[in-house]
Amino acid sequence: MYCQDFFNINDPQMAHHILKATKDTVHLGGFSHLLTPALTVNSSDTIEVETYSGYYVYDKAPPEFLTPEFLDICQNLAAERKIASGPHLLTGPIYVRDAEPGDVLEVKLTAIAPSLPVGFNAIRPGWGALPEIFPQPALRFIPLDLENNIAEFPTNSGIKIPLKPFFGILGVATPETSRISIPPGYYGGNIDNRELQAGSRIFLPIFVPGALFSIGDGHAAQGDGEVNVTAIETSMNGKIKLTLRKDLHFTTPIGETLTDIITMGFGETLDAALELALKNMIDFLERFTNLSPEEAYVLCSLAVNFRITQVVNSPQKGVHGMLPKAIFSHKINW
């Protein structure tokens, strides 16, 4: 395990941690409450966290995608840290002292940045929004211009995609012995919501003591829907703050950006996901803005933007609702 702790000179009760990704601090393919924590923190501690992506494609990757630490993980990860059949390599879990089932974990995403000048995109047979039309596997490594914050795709096409990095997976463990990392759910997980960039927060319900939060699946850029299964997947570093919220009681993840409140819905169809995202937004408006259910329903039709999050994390598709904070004359306190 590799981590360092530093006390905040302005608040000695708060500590700052550095959590590197090593074969002792990552896990593959899913979530499990049986995992030994990679780090233990107090509420309101901050963490510089390192993540790697591409466990199953490292042998096909160019040299600039590989680091000695990543190779060590890919070649020497212990069997007990291979949780399920998902493709995601996650850093954690992080144990939060005093966290109990029924509490909420607030995750503030202070900084997010790719750590490598390259990422990859993969088409997997049988997956994606159009598996019958694109049945053949395809793996592409895409250079990242970190100085200008763009990726050109295809190469020499003049098509320049702005880099807007985020973590595709932000989640906590559940009472099940193991849970595959592919579908998102009430615990968070593989949400793939590109709105959750630096400066945003996500609130996750807690289901086991310590919360056991894990993070990974770095995306340098992604469109809503993530329609061919992957974004520009790459290794990602971030700075996060974990705060235990015993004053909140959610049963599903809720996000907040600088401009919007975000509710989420996950279902086997987009209709089901939309219905849940809408119900969750109505519930939020009732609880925190004192609107009646009917008033909240009408406001959702007038001012909330519902968007497709992703359609490829079988069996759960995702829809999220964006509530603009600017429409309120007073700050929503929650």
Rank of each mutant, 00 (worst) to 15 (best):
Y2N: 12
C3A: 08
F7K: 14
I9W: 01
D11P: 06
M14P: 00
A15C: 07
H16E: 08
H16C: 00
I18T: 10
A21E: 06
A21D: 07
K23A: 07
D24V: 00
V26S: 04
H27Q: 13
G30V: 07
T36L: 12
T36S: 15
T40F: 04
N42Y: 14
S43W: 10
S43E: 11
E50I: 01
G54D: 12
Y55M: 12
K60V: 00
P62H: 09
F65R: 04
L66R: 11
E69P: 02
D72R: 03
A78M: 11
T91H: 01
T91F: 00
P93I: 03
I94V: 14
V96E: 12
D98L: 07
A99H: 10
D103S: 06
V104Y: 04
V107G: 08
I112P: 13
S115K: 12
L116F: 10
G119V: 09
G119A: 13
F120P: 15
A122G: 05
G126D: 11
F134I: 14
P135G: 12
Q136P: 00
A138W: 04
R140I: 05
F141N: 14
L146V: 06
L146H: 07
E147D: 15
E147S: 14
E147L: 13
T155I: 05
N156E: 10
G158A: 02
I161A: 01
P162Q: 02
F166H: 12
F167T: 03
L170R: 01
L170Y: 00
V172F: 07
A173R: 02
A173D: 14
A173L: 03
A173F: 02
P175Y: 12
E176V: 04
R179W: 07
S181E: 06
S181F: 01
P184V: 06
P184Q: 09
Y186C: 07
Y186V: 14
N193Q: 14
N193K: 04
E195F: 10
S200T: 13
L204Q: 08
P209G: 12
G210R: 09
F213R: 05
S214V: 03
S214T: 13
G216Q: 03
G218K: 10
G218A: 08
A221R: 07
Q222H: 06
N228A: 07
V229C: 03
T230G: 03
I232G: 05
I232F: 04
E233A: 00
E233M: 03
E233G: 01
T234P: 10
M236F: 02
I240R: 05
K241P: 00
H249A: 13
P253H: 02
E256W: 02
E256I: 02
T257Q: 08
L258W: 00
M264H: 13
M264S: 02
T269C: 06
A272S: 15
K279G: 06
D283W: 11
L285N: 14
T289Y: 08
L299F: 09
C300D: 08
C300V: 05
S301R: 10
T309H: 00
V311L: 09
V311H: 07
V312P: 01
S314Y: 09
V319F: 03
G321T: 05
L323I: 12
A326T: 09
I327A: 07
S329Q: 13
H330K: 14
H330M: 06
